[in-house]
Simulated assay, not measured.
Amino acid sequence: MKRRSLGSAILNGKCPRCREGNIFPVAMLSYLKLTEVHQECPHCEAVLTPEPDFFYGAMYISYAFSVALVINILLILNYVFGDPEISVYVITVIISNFLLLPLMLRYSKVLYLYGVGKLKYDPEKSQSLK
């Protein structure tokens, strides 16, 4: 079996221990069940939520994503479109936040789980439980 790289596992929302099982019950870009995370990895049965409210810390990462998005939109609109009306800024920020909401929420949880969670990659877990 081919080993999945760390970057590929993070981009696809896979379990930090086996890098095979999905962290979320639905696709990464889905608007359904935005906050739901598997309690255990469906592949290696690692506990993905070690305690209640574990993912509250992911709000800081999500906030950083939102701030980066707003700054980038403001810069792009200002330099590319020559300082449009304030309503254009507001509407563009609201629409882009709505469109990227699942992406920002889910990747903040994935990054938080990989960064703060105690699960470390175990290649034998990814191969033995198939």
Score class of each variant (00 low, 15 high):
residue 79 Y to S: 08
residue 66 S to Q: 10
residue 9 A to M: 09
residue 19 R to E: 11
residue 34 L to V: 03
residue 24 F to Y: 11
residue 25 P to E: 03
residue 38 H to S: 06
residue 30 S to H: 05
residue 79 Y to C: 00
residue 18 C to D: 13
residue 28 M to A: 04
residue 77 L to T: 04
residue 34 L to H: 05
residue 69 L to D: 01
residue 60 Y to W: 13
residue 24 F to N: 09
residue 54 F to Y: 15
residue 89 Y to I: 06
residue 89 Y to R: 06
residue 52 P to M: 09
residue 14 K to M: 09
residue 77 L to D: 06
residue 76 I to F: 15
residue 41 C to P: 12
residue 88 V to A: 14
residue 89 Y to F: 15
residue 77 L to A: 05
residue 80 V to T: 13
residue 84 P to Y: 00
residue 39 Q to T: 09
residue 25 P to S: 04
residue 47 V to W: 01
residue 82 G to Y: 04
residue 35 T to R: 11
residue 7 G to R: 04
residue 12 N to D: 14
residue 62 S to I: 00
residue 28 M to G: 04
residue 16 P to N: 06
residue 34 L to K: 04
residue 63 Y to N: 11
residue 66 S to P: 05
residue 41 C to Q: 05
residue 25 P to D: 07
residue 88 V to F: 12
residue 61 I to L: 15
residue 20 E to D: 01
residue 37 V to M: 14
residue 57 G to P: 11
residue 9 A to D: 10
residue 60 Y to I: 10
residue 44 C to D: 11
residue 77 L to R: 04
residue 5 S to C: 02
residue 66 S to G: 15
residue 8 S to D: 14
residue 21 G to N: 08
residue 59 M to L: 14
residue 54 F to A: 06
residue 44 C to R: 03
residue 70 V to R: 03
residue 24 F to C: 10
residue 26 V to S: 11
residue 79 Y to D: 07
residue 68 A to I: 08
residue 48 L to D: 13
residue 25 P to G: 09
residue 55 F to V: 03
residue 20 E to L: 02
residue 70 V to S: 14
residue 24 F to S: 11
residue 38 H to N: 15
residue 52 P to D: 09
residue 43 H to M: 02
residue 28 M to V: 03
residue 47 V to D: 14
residue 32 L to V: 03
residue 77 L to M: 08
residue 87 S to V: 13
residue 68 A to Y: 02
residue 36 E to P: 00
residue 59 M to G: 15
residue 12 N to K: 14
residue 44 C to I: 01
residue 81 F to W: 12
